[in-house]
Amino acid sequence: MKKETTKSAKAIRTRNNVLIHILLAVLAFIWVFPVLWVIMTSFRAEKGSYVSTFFPKAFTLDNYIKLFTDTTILNFPKMFMNTLVIAIFSCLLSTFFVLSAAYCLSRMRFKMRKPYMNMAMILGLFPGFMSMVAVYFILKAVGLTEGSLIRLALILCYSGGAALGFQIAKGFFDTTPYAIDEAAMIDGCTRWQVFTKITLPLSKPIIIYTILTSFISPWVDFIFAKVICRANADQYTVAIGLWKMLEKEYIDNWYTCFAAGAVLISIPIAILFLKLQKYYVNGMTGAVKG
């Protein structure tokens, strides 16, 4: 009697497992499919954005080559360099701002602390680029909207408001026991020394997270970049370039190159994102400790 019931319970479980795995496989395919399609398209020999058949008839590497050699209309290598420079500097600046603000808000008590946190929350409710046009005018008034200073303008845009995104970093600092700070102060540290010698070494996960997220954002933002660059094609970032490739006048020649370009920038970002995944998951439940 007992044997039969355990056997059928097991059978039910196996059946459930099989069904669920099939379901997962189907869903996984749906999710991965567009990615596969882009990769296929980047190797497609036929031009244009219309396809009569699903799979490419011929494969080629021309699209990739074209990206780097055909710089007359859309200078991909230059855009890449622009974006790289902007990403590095805005990442440095952002990380400094975010960590400073998060540390002060987590560890120190001062009169403007609560008002600051409330202000950050309220500012976050405004549509992100409502102020975009205004920022453009301000930058123009200061003279940052022409020529190579555009890159500086973009760096400032991406990192300027960084200190408003202190929440995750602050959450992490909050989980480090305050007793360690106190022990360090008794041992003779000034608060700055506590920050540099004790807190930062213990915060590797959150530092990496902040650096990586602020590095990624200039690559994927195109609204701000478009507004500030306007027609200065030599200052374009990669995001604008890819967008332009899909515009009516370019799409026939550049559609497959768009796919190639998309693959090229997706690879490093994907790698970075996979590294970040760990911290992303823990972000809500309390941070990973080193």
Partner: peptide, 11 residues
């Protein structure tokens, strides 16, 4: 599933 969000959203 994650690979689909590793690709930049606008792409």
């Amino acid at each position: 599933f994650v690979i689909s969000c590793a690709v930049p959203m606008f792409v």
